[in-house]
């Protein structure tokens, strides 16, 4: 799972893809996960980090993170080729 490395993320939650010219906003949890992806953390590491910090459970996190990845893919923020190789 690799995030497109040109993506710019700011503290305000503004996400910009200079390749496509599209901009997005994300909530703090979204930004946190994008930052983890940029550091090339694995899905399992992301799950663990979220569970460690927030009051929630494994099923919820797995489901929500998977859905978030779907959104990132739809928005072309995750490189499709690399994800299929994973």
């Amino acid at each position: 799972m690799k995030i497109n490395k040109h993506i710019a993320v700011s503290d305000s939650g503004f996400v910009f893809n200079p390749v496509t010219g599209e901009s997005f906003t994300a909530n703090p949890m979204g930004i946190e996960i994008i930052e983890m992806l940029k550091k090339e953390q694995t899905v399992e590491e992301i799950h663990a980090a979220v569970l460690d910090k927030y009051h929630t459970d494994n099923t919820t996190v797995e489901k929500d993170v998977a859905e978030f990845f779907e959104l990132l893919k739809n928005f072309s923020l995750i490189d499709r080729h690399e994800t299929t190789e994973n």
């Binding site: 997005f24 906003t25 949890m29 979204g30 910090k53 927030y54 959104l71």
Partner: peptide
Amino acid sequence: EKLRYERPLIKRLDGNMPNKFG
């Protein structure tokens, strides 16, 4: 103490969209 969980969210911004952030 663990923080309140909120699911991750990302939305595309466009000029027509009323923006509720902030």
